[in-house]
Structures are given as structure tokens and as C-alpha cells.
């Protein structure tokens, strides 16, 4: 082998050996690179982002829920904090109502729901509702009360709007029932 070829070989040997060493370093460089790459692309965050999805939601249609409120023979102010919302059947939604006791003494009442149209009632599933319990309000107290509900996806397709109407009644047997004698002018 001539000297020139021999030195050419040596040069190439050095270069290739250096390249191998570089690639050894690259193996280590992959550690920080991986972290950076994961932060940018979310490659590693696959389990964090995979939140459970409610497959029971019928995203193909929206139902309008309108809210209405009344009091029956009770000196309270009662109103929904939103006039209507739109929900997908199967989706969990929440609405809020406000009630104010205008009297100077505590009173107890209970809200009774009704639905329009009437047949929508069986598809309107309340999860929590202020109407499940008696509400006792101190003198002049105001209270925000939620109702959490799901519209059953089995709701007939021809029902596009449901009106949810609450009426507050004074609870019978309450010792304040005698106060009925005083007209309230509501």
C-alpha cells in the first residue's frame, strides 16, 4: 500500500471514528432533546390530555330550555338568572335562580316544577335541584339556587323547546301560615 493511500486511509479512519463518537454523544443528547420535543409537541402527554368523553351526548341537535318563575301567595321575589339556555340532549347543564324574602321574618317555601310541553317532563332529568328541599329564608335574605339537569337523548325530535317553570308555595303547616291573613299584594 503506497504512503499516500495509507495517509488517506488514516484521515478517513479518524473522521469515521469521530463520527461514531459524535453519534455516541447524540445518544445522550437525545435525553434533553426528547424533553424539549415532548414539551413542544405533547408527544409524552398523551395520557394527560385523554380526558373521558361522554359518549351519550347527542351533539346532532340543540334543545332550548326556557326558564319561568312564579310565587304563589308568598311575599318572595323569585326570578331565573338566565332567560334560556341551549343544550345538547345528554349534556349536563346548570341554571340558577334567585329568590329574595322581602318580609322582615323567616319563612319556608318549596318550589314545584312544571314543564311545557307537558310530555317533555319525563325526559327532563334533574340531578340536583333547589326544589328537592324546603327552602327557609331569613328575614330579607337573598339566595342563588342551582338546578343541574340532563335532557334525555330519547327526547322526541319534534320537541325543540322546553319551558321549565317553577312556582314557590309556602309550606303548609308552617307556623307563619297564619300570616296569610295579611294580603301581600303580589
Amino acid at each position: 500500500m503506497s504512503a499516500s493511500v495509507s495517509s488517506k486511509n488514516r484521515t478517513l479512519l479518524t473522521r469515521l471514528a469521530l463520527f461514531s463518537l459524535l453519534m455516541f454523544g447524540f445518544g445522550y443528547a437525545l435525553v434533553p432533546l426528547y424533553k424539549v420535543f415532548c414539551n413542544i409537541t405533547g408527544l409524552n402527554a398523551v395520557n394527560l390530555t385523554a380526558a373521558p368523553v361522554n359518549s351519550q351526548v347527542d351533539t346532532g341537535r340543540l334543545v332550548d330550555i326556557e326558564f319561568d318563575s312564579n310565587v304563589h301567595d308568598l311575599p318572595w321575589k323569585f326570578r331565573p338568572l338566565q332567560s334560556h339556555i341551549s343544550v345538547h340532549p345528554g349534556e349536563v347543564a346548570q341554571a340558577e335562580f334567585e329568590v329574595v324574602n322581602t318580609r322582615g321574618e323567616p319563612m319556608t317555601g318549596q318550589a314545584i316544577p312544571s314543564y311545557g310541553p307537558r310530555e317533555a317532563g319525563e325526559y327532563f332529568k334533574k340531578i340536583t335541584c333547589f326544589c328537592f328541599n324546603k327552602q327557609t329564608l331569613a328575614a330579607g335574605e337573598s339566595r342563588h339556587m342551582p338546578v343541574v339537569f340532563v335532557v334525555d337523548p330519547a327526547l322526541p325530535r319534534d320537541i325543540g323547546t322546553i319551558t321549565l317553570s317553577y312556582t314557590f308555595f309556602e309550606v303548609e303547616g308552617n307556623k307563619r301560615a297564619e300570616a296569610k291573613a295579611i294580603p301581600t299584594g303580589s
Binding site: 469515521l16 463520527f19 453519534m23 455516541f24 454523544g25 447524540f26 445518544g27 445522550y28 437525545l30 435525553v31
Partner: peptide, 14 residues
């Protein structure tokens, strides 16, 4: 080989 064997050597060294 010279591109990936060193990477493997690095991985097992780690």
C-alpha cells in the same frame, strides 16, 4: 452501523 451502534452503546451505558 457507525451511525446507530454508538447510539445503542449510549443507551445501554445509560
Amino acid at each position: 452501523i457507525i451511525a446507530v451502534m454508538p447510539v445503542f452503546a449510549g443507551a445501554v451505558t445509560m
